[in-house]
């Protein structure tokens, strides 16, 4: 929530604080997943596998509203806004640049909150299938959610037939973000 809080903090302390940001956010994705209709009907192993593969991508969608592409700032959960230049000191420059680019593309689609939530559900169940036991069940769940998302978007914007395909094109973007950046290192202090 608070990656930077004054010049008296060492870069190590800032890095620890930034790493800690992800813990509550990941837990919220797990709770979000449990609320997706049909998700808890999958086997526990498949639920865990989808969450392990897809949580980073869901977080990228969730966090993109915190990125202001116009003035190149990021707003953290404590409500404070930091310029990209300050955050580069954390060493996450390439991830932040990719996030700005992604948030610009997704932001331009102008999704309502419920559309965004349904899109996040699609992102999660569209994650990598390695290790999934019941492929058919996961595919059925994915198809149902994609149908619901298409229906919601088309009902609300019957004159815009390009929005839904453009939204689906963000899925490969998220996979690329995941492949390039999920191996970034975090540091947690052991007391």
């Amino acid at each position: 929530a608070c990656p930077v809080s004054g010049a008296d903090r060492s870069s190590q302390e800032i890095w620890e604080s930034f790493s800690q940001c992800f813990t509550p956010a990941v837990k919220e994705v797990v709770e979000f997943a449990k609320g997706i209709p049909g998700f808890q009907e999958l086997s526990q192993q498949d639920q865990v596998m989808l969450l392990k593969s897809g949580t980073f991508q869901v977080l990228m969608v969730r966090f993109c509203t915190l990125f202001n592409a116009e003035d190149r700032t990021v707003t953290f959960l404590n409500g404070k806004t930091y310029p990209l230049s300050t955050l580069r000191a954390l060493g996450m420059g390439s991830l932040l640049d990719a996030m700005f680019e992604f948030s610009e593309k997704l932001g331009s689609l102008g999704l309502e909150p419920d559309e965004m939530a349904l899109f996040m559900a699609v992102v999660l169940v569209s994650a990598d299938r390695s290790g999934i036991l019941d492929m058919w069940a996961v595919e059925q769940l994915q198809e149902g959610l994609i149908r619901a998302l298409r229906s919601l978007i088309n009902r609300r914007r019957p004159d815009d037939t390009t929005l839904f395909p453009k939204l689906l094109l963000r899925l490969p973007d998220l996979r690329t973000l995941n492949n390039f950046h999920s191996e970034k290192l975090l540091a947690f202090r052991i007391d």
Binding site: Q12, E16, S19, F22, T23, V26, K27, V30, Q44, Q47, V48, L51, K52, T55, F56, H181, S182, E183, K184, L185, L186, A187, F188, R189, I190
Partner: peptide
């Protein structure tokens, strides 16, 4: 002198998820 556990974001996510499911079993 501080000791740190260093892990990738992917491993950290995995760890939280495994913990959560184990806790709720």
């Amino acid at each position: 002198h501080k000791t740190h556990r260093v892990m990738t974001l992917a491993d950290h996510i995995s760890h939280i998820i495994t913990q959560d499911f184990a806790r709720n079993q």
